Amino acid sequence: MVTLGVIVLFRLGQSLPAPHVTVRAPEDDPPLRWILDLLTGGGLSTLPVFAFGVLPCLVAPRLLRALIVLSPRLAALRAEGEAGARVLTRYRRRLTVVLGLAGAICVLGFRGQDVLDGRGAVAVACLTAGTALVLRLTEVITDRGFGDGVRILLLAQVLAVLPPEFLRLCERTGWTAIVVMAVVTLSITVITIVVAQGQRRVPVQYAKRMIGVRTYGGSPTYLPLRFPQANSPAVLAAALLSVPVLWPGVSRLGWLRDEGDPWRIAVYFVLVCLFAFIRAAASQDMDKVARDLVRVGGFVPGIRPGSPTADYLGYVNHRVIGFGAVCSGVVALIPALGLALLDASPRIPVAGVTLLVVLVFLVSVTLDTTRQIESLRRQRRYAPFLR
């Protein structure tokens, strides 16, 4: 109920007009404006109270991570543990509000409104306060609801923008669009769940230890190796292939503008597989896993502890992430091929990756919610209710 209530309040804020803001009908409808509407829930077109949606909440953590790499003081805070994490959380919140303030000034200034007079200052303050309130709503979902607040609100605003585009597509193609979208949705959902739930179990044995008069360890277990799910490889590949859309004067790469071109699809598949493999390999450190096993007295049967264990785990992990990278490429191709059959690329240049992100978000949010509900169910005793 908390999650649903926050979503309703969020969509209400994206429909409530900000004061002293004149909304004009757009003279043209470029694809990049549609992408911005997707990221902000259509807020940049009408400038409601929640004009920027969860976009500042998405940008602030990534910008803070970049600043941590550049600033030794922030890096020291991250190394302090829980105390440093609380300080970084405060910095992230302040950075989110600052991004909302900067975005409000830039958007109103671009519309030709003076932000220094009384009306402009009120509009800037309202949009900035809306960003701060959206930040608080995401934290309420994370703390008291189900799932990650930013991801759930992002999914809500994306689903609010996509239906008009889907209806426009159905008007052009009829029942074909419904059949193709059903096949694409089912295929992506099945493959994503299989890859997300799948794991390679490496057997691990722990040495027996005597603590007091009791014996601990000695029981066999396993080390699960998974492929980390992410939408960033498909988004990055689509961004690289969308360069001709930004500079239409480039004639030699004109085939990249058509999402149905076979060469573009092939390059897109290779880039997604490559980026997915690099991201998964960089996010998992098998040397650290091997050191942790040595520290707690664990070992892989038949493999010597230390460097041989790290090499073996790295070999197995590379095979796992290689298969996962190919699956990511296949999943990224499914919506691209489906929308190419419907000829949706002239309207939406990144329609394939947009549909992919929406479906993967939906599946991941559903899986997270199901896990949390199952965990909550196990913590409660239902015997009185079953009698």
Rank of each mutant, 00 (worst) to 15 (best):
A76P: 02
L116N: 12
I105T: 09
L108F: 06
R78E: 15
A104L: 02
G109C: 09
L77K: 10
V87W: 09
V97A: 15
L95K: 09
R94M: 14
R90I: 08
A75L: 09
A79H: 00
C106S: 09
Y91H: 12
F110W: 15
L101I: 04
L101W: 10
A102N: 03
Q113F: 07
P72L: 01
R111V: 01
G112V: 08
A121R: 15
L95E: 10
P72S: 01
G118I: 03
R93H: 11
G109V: 06
L95Y: 09
R92K: 13
R93W: 12
A83T: 08
R94C: 12
A79W: 00
R73H: 12
L74G: 02
L95G: 08
E80W: 01
A79C: 00
E82G: 01
T89D: 14
D114T: 01
L88S: 05
A121E: 11
V69P: 07
S71H: 07
R92W: 00
I68M: 14
R73F: 11
I105S: 03
R86G: 06
L101Q: 04
L108T: 06
R119V: 05
A85N: 10
R111C: 03
R92M: 10
S71E: 10
G112E: 08
L108C: 08
L74Y: 05
C106M: 10
L108G: 06
A75R: 14
A75W: 04
L67Q: 13
G120C: 11
D117K: 08
Y91S: 07
G100I: 02
I68D: 11
R119S: 15
T89R: 14
G81V: 01
L88F: 04
R86I: 03
G84K: 02
G118E: 13
G120H: 07
A104W: 01
G109P: 06
L95T: 11
